[in-house]
Amino acid sequence: MEQSKNTNLRFLSVTTLNVLITFFELVGGLLSGSLSLISDAFHNFSDTFSIVLSYIANLIGHKKATPKNSYGYRRVEILTALLSSIILILISLFLLFEGINRIQHPETVKGAIMFWVAVVSFIANLGAALLLHVGASNNLNIKATYLHLLSDSLASVGVIIGSIFIYFFNLTWIDPVITILVSLYIAYESLPIIQQTFRILMEGSPDIDVDHVKNDLLAIPEIKDVHHFHSWSINENELMASVHVNLSDLPLSETEKIYSSIENILKDKYNIRHVTIQAECTRGLKKAMCLSSEDETENLKNDK
């Protein structure tokens, strides 16, 4: 409960900071003529939108499971992380085209105003990123938001450096170049999150060596064979699995002990917290653990 309150407070603080930064950079960009400041203001606006989405998703994700949603609502956070990352990609494309256009059609930039606005923005963005850093390691949704804020901080560093060169050497082309570099960095950081969320939503298998799983389970004396092993993710932290095992014709009380052994192995070695186990005597015996889709379909027909 205390952790939830702290998370809510961090989200509220970060949202407030980003709203202030957005207006501050927008006004500063218009006064200085800096494209990098204006683009960063739009970036911050998207961050504010993403943070609000993340906050709502965090609340929904912690709702208890229901009969209709037996796995709970944690996938909402994955959907939000995907949406936030896609927004970042679109913003990076917009900044890229605007930067190229400004190089072709340069404009006057006031380096002094640009410098001080960028310094204040950097401090605020870094503070907001640090507020979310604690939860970014084990929550993909918070990580996506954290990367939003971190990219803003790095963008502000680039703007600060660019403003110095503009002020002392009148190198106005640096402003759009910084914008282009920031856009490429945003895309670089966002693509892995999009790939990971797609894999989770498509029920892709986590990074687990299936042969090792089979050998570990076959080490249990009562298990003759293992097949039809499937694993997937509810989110980036919760793994699920199902497996068929061939046993002798044992009493149910003995079978339950074997189930417990299987569950402990999958939990301790592979971090699989929920597993569905089907015990069989001869059905599927000696079948390959990972079958091609055609073989799988044929075996299911034969089983019937």
Rank of each mutant, 00 (worst) to 15 (best):
L218D: 10
K214Y: 05
T179N: 10
I194P: 02
S205F: 05
P192D: 08
Q195T: 08
T197K: 08
K214F: 05
E222L: 09
S183L: 02
E203G: 04
P206V: 11
T197E: 06
E203Q: 15
R199T: 14
F198R: 12
L181M: 12
A187W: 00
H212R: 14
K214A: 12
S190C: 06
A219C: 09
D211E: 15
R199W: 09
I180K: 02
D207R: 10
D209Y: 01
V182T: 12
G204L: 08
I180V: 14
S190L: 00
I180A: 00
P192Q: 06
L218K: 12
P176R: 04
N215I: 03
I186F: 05
D216H: 12
M202K: 11
Y188M: 08
P221Q: 10
D207E: 15
D175E: 03
Q195K: 15
T197V: 09
D216L: 06
D216Q: 14
T179W: 02
E189M: 13
L184H: 01
T197W: 07
P176V: 07
D207A: 14
D216F: 05
V182F: 04
R199S: 15
E189N: 12
K214N: 11
M202D: 08
G204C: 13
Y185W: 14
A219V: 05
I220T: 10
D207Q: 15
S183N: 00
D216Y: 10
M202T: 14
I208C: 09
Y188L: 07
I193L: 12
D175C: 05
Y185A: 08
D175T: 02
E222M: 11
Y188A: 07
E203S: 13
I178F: 03
I200W: 04
P176Q: 07
I178N: 03
D209Q: 11
E203P: 01
L191H: 01
I180Y: 03
D207S: 14
I208S: 08
D211Q: 14
I200N: 04
I178R: 01
F198M: 13
I186R: 01
I220A: 08
L181G: 01
V182M: 05
F198H: 09
D211M: 13
I200D: 02
L217A: 09
E203K: 12
D207M: 10
L218A: 10
T197C: 13
T179K: 03
Q195D: 07
N215G: 07
I186G: 02
M202W: 08
E203C: 11
Y188S: 06
I208Y: 08
L218W: 12
M202S: 14
Q196W: 03
S183D: 01
L201T: 06
V210C: 11
L184R: 04
I174P: 02
L184A: 12
I220D: 03
G204R: 07
P206W: 11
D207K: 15
L181R: 03
D175G: 03
E203L: 13
K214V: 15
Y188G: 06
P176C: 01
V210P: 08
E189A: 11
D207L: 12
D211W: 04
V182A: 02
H212F: 10
I186T: 00
D175A: 05
H212E: 14
L184E: 00
L218S: 12
Y185G: 11
F198C: 13
L191S: 05
V177D: 04
I174D: 00
P192E: 06
I180G: 01
I178Q: 00
L201V: 10
I208L: 14
